[in-house]
Design a protein around this nucleic acid. Sequence first.
RNA 1: GCCGAAGUGGCGGAACUGGCAGACGCGCUGGACUCAAAAUCCAGUGGGAUUCACCUCCCGUGGGGGUUCAAGUCCCCCCUUCGGCACCA
Length: 811
Amino acid sequence: MSKNYDFLTIEKKWREYWDQHKIFKVAEDPSIPEDKRLYVLDMFPYPSGSGLHVGHPEGYTATDIYCRYKKMSGYNVLHPMGFDAFGLPAENYAIQTGTHPSETTYKNIDHFRGQIKALGFCYDWDREISTCDADYYKWTQWIFLQLFKKGLAYEAQMPINWCPKCGTGLANEEVKDGRCDRCDTPIERKNIRQWILKITAYAERLLKDLDVLDWNDSIKLMQENWIGKSEGAEVDFEISGLNEKLRVFTTRPDTLFGATYMVLAPEHPLVGKLTTPEQKKAVESYIKEASRKSDLQRTELNKEKSGVFTGAYAINSVNQKQIPIWISDYVLISYGTGAIMAVPAHDERDFEFAKKFGLPIIQVVSKDGSSYELQEAESTEGFAIGSGKYNGMKTADFKKAITEDLEKQGKGKKTINYKLRDWVFSRQRYWGEPIPIVHCEKCGIVPLEEKDLPLKLPEVKTYKPTGTGESPLALIEDWVNTTCPKCGGRAKRETNTMPQWAGSCWYYIRFTDPRNDKDLASKSSMEYWLPVDLYIGGAEHAVLHLLYARFWHKFLYDSGVVNTIEPFMTLRNQGMVLGENGEKMSKSRGNVINPDDVIAEHGADTLRIYEMFMGPLSADKPWNTQGIIGLRRFLEKVFRLFDKEIEESLPVNDSINRLLHKTIKIVGERIDSLEFNTAISQMMVFTNALQKEEKINKSILRDFVKILHPFAPFVTEEMWEMLGERPSVLKTKWPSYREELTQDEKIAIAVQENGKLRDTIFMSKDVTKQEMEEIALNSDKMKKILENKEKIKVISVPGKVVNVVTRIVTA
RNA sequence: GCCGAAGUGGCGGAACUGGCAGACGCGCUGGACUCAAAAUCCAGUGGGAUUCACCUCCCGUGGGGGUUCAAGUCCCCCCUUCGGCACCA
């Protein structure tokens, strides 16, 4: 009885079945051993108004296949989904449309949930969370309070990155090329009151623990570079005629003898003190100019060096030389000590500056120990010259020696600096977690009591950003004005909200126990599931979410909340799904593919396997509307196999049986290594072979339906039923294979002459090396080829190749 | 500028620790079925030479060198594309 592949009916039927029977429900079953418990997580989506992007199902299908395979292999798998629902886009959309962000957000969430469910992912929907739910952000606030109590959240008035379009301050991580990561607007500098998290306190551990993580090297490297550890020394310089010391940081204390001038950042606190009256005017005008420059201008490409002499001199203690002190904006106040010793001979920037202002350049490091004319700064290591008693020392040894000597004299010490800055954590916007702090007239900054959490976001009509650096919450009088939890006196609430990243810093913890109202999650649930075993998402969060979440996790570890030092053990990054033209998908480029349309036309199963078949998970891949047909045909072809005669008692053809075992093996291995494209190819090969058979043994088809199930869950449930089995396939056991049946009886051996293919001979899979060579050399073809040639040697690799090295015999 | 990833048919991509380059899919060509078409099935499909008797040979994985019996895979130099960082002393 022939039946068409009616995906609309099939997918609806099984979607409802799964929902009703809670097929995807997961519980903390204590009888399952620890090594059979898995936590597989997707980066949860931001529920934007435009709905799911075809990029979302890529990562989600990958983890879904992995989870289904693992479940069928006897694992207890936690696989949850939720929504990262606080943030600017929702708020901007709300402002545009005049609807409240909470209304639009929940509407978007419903839309997203529907779209995600249509794809048949095996999420335990009873664990769904949204970061904007008060039940959830109560604990985000709770974590903030713990940070505050440990001194890791502090308030400061400082210049920060300000996006005038978003009307809020941003973290360093949210600035790209001097522009807002979100809207591409050039960043301005703004001096406003901020809440800041001391992520720098964790710099070393964030760096070191990268070693224990199974992450892509490129992501690890990006974090490593962002943290930017550099080892060197702080060295004190006396200032001529002034009882002040000027401290600099250098990674090359071995070049101290080559320091020919000093440079301070314009903002350096000593500038005023040491500037001479004659230079005062020039210095002040330079400072003023520098302060007006935006970050973008200050870091502009190929910018000419600028600077002004202060009139003061420092004394280089190693040789008592007086060297001039300059100020320049190429020295940053925020790094090191905000001051440097300039060694133009061995530092490119100093070289450029010295050339421009005619400052002396003295070589103190040499490749070979001799001195020579430098055409450019030579920053490579070598041997010391012109450095008194240190002459001839290798750079590394010199560094160590002089650092120790300076330390003994009390003039310097070994120092480590990081590029990582503290995390600017407050946003001057409405749609985020309120910071649970009040400002009391008497007591100052006072945290809310834990029992008073959650501090709910007031429901108001005006949530437009003020643009002034104040949050819109500041305008809500009856919310802002409150009493101090400590003294009961008059107080004002903190009106800044948390950045979007806050909620995603710990959502994976909440998933282990999402309805707990006593704790962020119970100890037992966290211990059962954490850490996340496999985490899949885009690479764009390399130094944002992935760094922030690691920071919070480490803090929670120190606080005794979680019991692992890292949150995400294995991380894989999916590539981008590009438009058909190979460009990034975007509305403005007009190349957006809507997953709803694809599902309506081909079904969710086809969309799933197409996205997996497109190429390696990690690669960026262009969408191809033509190409998806092939995957649709594949499923139809599998479906048509059921029109053949299928019997339990039919004899099993040896080659089909071998191919089945090989396929079971390959598909399992490829799922384990997340190489879904080749797993699908193998199933296609198997299907093509089955298709040629008139009759099919039923158990073969059963096994095949099982291995196809993780990829195409809907249609395989239907097929399972067509085989007379009871649902769900997900609850069956993954088929096993016999290793000896994964190889063909006869294998093709390449026969080469001087590395060039001359013949292919099929041989029994267990021929010995000698037999192989004998068969190969005695084939008619090879005999002919080898006529009149001298065999120099024969190289053979069992099961692969026989290569004869020959030479033509000259008569 | 620095760091990282990647360049394979008309297209997406295969090729395990060096061992038959182009699996699988799209597209294309021819054929079967059909009144016809769609769908499906069968055959072919890197380029070239030979002249088709499908036999044989040569070239071919961004370019140029090298190591090796053997290189898409290893080493050196260069080019292109993408991603990250951007005066971090």
